[in-house]
């Protein structure tokens, strides 16, 4: 499951990289996000209420609010340029959130302001998508099986918790970004923000449970600057 997610995230990054107005051959910020301390256990999700989903798993899938990798790597962290880069128009491709096996794929979906968001239901049950937006417009819609994808756009930058009212364990995050310079950490906690023109940038790392951290970085030419983030993990 996790590899598939990493794959999707990877595709998203690739897609983002090829579509932006960024400078090819510019500078790069890369690094690793880790945690220190004891993170909460990933607990198995009991889906017995929804048999059509439960039967898709040999062992119950784990919770994804904190996902860790080897060497204290922290997954699902959105690393992005929060200041220093201009706002960019959205790419033409849609960002896709799939609901499959009563989970959100991917758990964290990043896309740009005004980029088309498509939500599909691949399950045999009716889902409900309720992005709990505070800055953007909040909505709450059901998607019965067999209905067309739900399309939407967000016009302001925001990290939006997403939940399914019908299946309480389904939680995810929308990261609405102002530009194309963002990356979501995979199992190794690594990220890369390429194609940055020379300049001063603020790099921010956001994790849905642990909040955000920022660092300043200056890029000159086509150099690669290394930036690492360390989050404090709590067992509960």
């Amino acid at each position: 499951m996790r590899t598939k997610q990493a794959f999707i995230a990877g595709v998203a990054i690739l897609a983002a990289a090829t579509m932006t107005s960024a400078v090819p051959g510019g500078g790069t910020v890369s690094g690793k996000v880790t945690y220190e301390g004891t993170p909460a256990k990933q607990k198995p999700i009991d889906m017995s209420k929804e048999p059509s989903c439960a039967k898709q798993y040999a062992t119950p899938p784990p919770t994804e609010t904190v996902v860790t990798g080897p060497n204290n790597a922290l997954e699902n962290v959105v690393v992005y340029i929060s200041a220093g880069a201009p706002d960019e128009p959205p790419p033409s491709q849609a960002a896709v959130l799939a609901q499959k096996g009563c989970r959100y794929l991917p758990h964290v979906l990043a896309f740009q302001v005004n980029q088309e968001l498509k939500i599909t239901n691949e399950d045999q049950t009716s889902h409900n998508i309720h992005p709990l937006a505070k800055i953007n417009r909040e909505w709450n819609k059901s998607q019965p099986p067999g209905t067309p994808p739900i399309s939407d756009k967000y016009d302001k930058m925001e990290f939006i918790p997403v939940k399914c009212n019908v299946h309480p364990w389904m939680h995810g995050t929308f990261a609405v970004m102002k530009n194309s310079h963002y990356s979501i950490t995979g199992a190794d906690g690594g990220f890369t923000l390429p194609d940055l023109p020379p300049g001063k940038y603020t790099v921010t790392a956001f994790h849905e449970s642990y909040g955000d951290q920022t660092q300043e970085v200056s890029i000159a030419g086509s150099e690669t600057k290394s930036v690492n983030f360390v989050f404090k993990a709590k067992p509960y």
């Binding site: 819609k141 059901s142 998607q143 067999g146 067309p148």
Partner: peptide, 13 residues
């Protein structure tokens, strides 16, 4: 449109 996407009635509708 929200209550019956594609002509299929949602639970809330």
């Amino acid at each position: 449109k929200a209550g019956a996407p594609g002509g299929i009635i949602t639970p809330e509708y």
